[in-house]
């Protein structure tokens, strides 16, 4: 199968998934048994506004028609308006994407940089002391509540040691942010040679990034270990060992063969991590998409909740697609069977 054919097939299969996702977000404001208008227009809406929303959503029409109206709106990039800020949801979300991306990017990178080597080493000496310790740490990583970790970090590094700035956003309040180019204060500061801003942005980044990395690394350790163990059991590794290859060469073979599934795993892990990272954003007042979404959930801004959930789901669909394409490029045979 060629790549275009694979892509076409894969995209075709995504269509029912997308419809399903749309149906879910459509249902989200209706399952509670409350009036969806009340949820979407908010408690401050006037009678006229409520009437307007009611007509816009087509609530006097049957469910199927309502769904079509909703789908039509989403396809034309209209995710509704937040009643809190009275701004369109989509542009509010898009504004915050680079902010969240910055945190996720460094966090996952650091998490992988810790998780992959630890997992590999643990697998090479399975059931040895290193494996036991790393397995315990990985379980601990699964068990620590993200937000609590953030709070403890702030307590230790901001309050006790005074190494880190307070967790109040992405740049110190007394430093003026650089002009927006990429949306990341660190990168923008570096680009405009504004060292003060870049330094402040970097110091604000450290704690939340370490939090994301700790949370991200636990499953990476577990998965890398499992993948490497599987590769270690394959015939070619046993042959390499039987042939007397030095342990270093064997390790290289294991590493190269375990890498592909591990990278694919990290890709899919990112989609769930966006949710976890939103709690870190919340604790550090990061101001990204995640904090925006959580704030909407806690304050009952349902147009934003609906849009945020949809946005994350579409992101996951895209990531799964990318992961499949990468998998196909690395191993074209896998596409033929599936």
């Amino acid at each position: 199968m060629t790549l275009p054919a694979f892509l076409a097939r894969r995209l075709l299969f995504s269509i029912p998934l997308l419809v399903g996702v749309l149906f879910f977000t459509f249902a989200l404001v209706r399952i509670g048994g409350q009036d969806p208008v009340a949820l979407l227009a908010g408690p401050t809406a006037t009678v006229q506004e409520i009437e307007l929303v009611r007509r816009e959503l087509g609530l006097d029409q049957p469910m199927a028609a309502q769904f079509l109206i909703y789908a039509q709106k989403v396809v034309s990039f209209d995710l509704g308006r937040s009643w809190l800020s009275n701004k369109p949801v989509l542009s509010e979300l898009l504004d915050r994407v680079p902010v969240t991306f910055e945190l996720m990017f460094w966090g996952v990178l650091l998490g992988a940089a810790i998780g992959i080597p630890v997992g590999l080493r643990a697998a090479l000496r399975a059931d040895g002391p290193f494996d036991q310790v790393s397995r315990f740490l990985s379980l601990l990583g699964f068990s620590i509540p993200t937000y609590w970790l953030g709070l403890v970090m702030l307590f230790v590094f901001f309050f006790l040691l005074e190494w880190a700035p307070p967790g109040m956003g992405r740049i110190s309040l007394i430093v003026s942010p650089p002009p927006r180019i990429t949306g990341s204060y660190l990168v923008d500061g570096l680009l405009t040679a504004n060292w003060e801003a870049a330094h402040s942005a970097l110091s604000q980044l450290v704690l939340p990034v370490v939090c994301v990395a700790i949370v991200a690394s636990a499953p990476i350790i577990k998965q890398t270990r499992a993948m490497a163990l599987e590769v270690l059991g394959r015939d070619y590794v046993r042959l390499a060992r039987a042939a007397g290859l030095p342990e270093r060469a064997v390790r290289r073979i294991v590493w190269r063969n375990a890498l592909v599934p591990v990278v694919t795993f990290i890709g899919t892990e990112v989609t769930g991590l966006v949710g976890t990272a939103s709690l870190i954003e919340y604790v550090f007042a990061w101001g990204g998409m995640g904090q925006y979404g959580l704030h909407a959930i806690t304050s009952g801004d349902f147009a934003v909740v609906q849009g945020y959930v949809l946005f994350l789901a579409l992101f996951s669909v895209l990531v799964f697609l990318l992961v499949d394409v990468v998998g196909f490029l690395l191993e074209p045979r896998s596409g033929a069977s599936g």
Partner: peptide, 22 residues
């Protein structure tokens, strides 16, 4: 259907449903 559910980050899914259902 269960595969489709995987596209929603689970924490956000739980939060959104609890918020929406009262």
């Amino acid at each position: 259907i269960f595969d489709a559910l995987r596209v929603f980050p689970i924490i956000i899914l739980a939060l959104a449903i609890v918020a929406a259902t009262g």
